[in-house]
């Protein structure tokens, strides 16, 4: 253990670099953090009032729900999604989700850009602006 000092210095530098975002925000004002975006609802979406699940669930779990939809539709051939209150929806991103949320740029992209995620849904599935 002759290199004790070197190792400890190295570790300290490593942690400083690795934890940069945390201490930087702590010291230089976390209040300035960029505000989360507000997705814009279309008139049709406002009118409908409820989505296929409550807002909180949709915000955090919509990707899991879409995964479940795609597996069930593609693999089991079951295309109708029935929710608790008995409402029925066609399990389709392009034809159900994008029917209400036809404003992809202001609804989907806003949050996805903020969170720096690039889902590849649109490589294959269409959204309204595109087909016009």
């Amino acid at each position: 253990m002759n290199d004790k000092n070197k190792i400890i210095t190295g570790l300290v530098i490593f942690f400083l670099v690795a934890l940069f975002p945390f201490w930087f925000n702590l010291i230089f004002g976390a209040s300035d953090a960029a505000k989360g975006p507000d997705p814009v609802l279309t008139d049709k979406a406002k009118e409908a009032e409820t989505c296929v699940a409550d807002t909180q669930f949709m915000r955090t779990e919509h990707m899991q729900l879409l995964d479940q939809w795609r597996d069930t539709v593609v693999r089991d051939g079951q295309r109708i999604y029935v929710v608790e209150n008995g409402n029925k929806y066609e399990a389709s991103l392009s034809n159900t989700c994008m029917d209400c949320h036809s404003n992809k740029a202001d609804f989907c992209d806003k949050c996805h850009n903020y969170a720096s995620v690039t889902p590849y849904c649109w490589d294959c599935h269409t959204y309204p602006e595109e087909t016009k």
């Binding site: 296929v52 699940a53 069930t72 079951q78 999604y81 929710v83 608790e84 399990a91």
Partner: peptide
């Protein structure tokens, strides 16, 4: 089923 939440009570049907 993908996690808990509303999906647990929901179900899929054929057209």
């Amino acid at each position: 089923a993908a996690g808990s939440g509303p999906s647990a009570a929901s179900l899929f049907k054929q057209r």
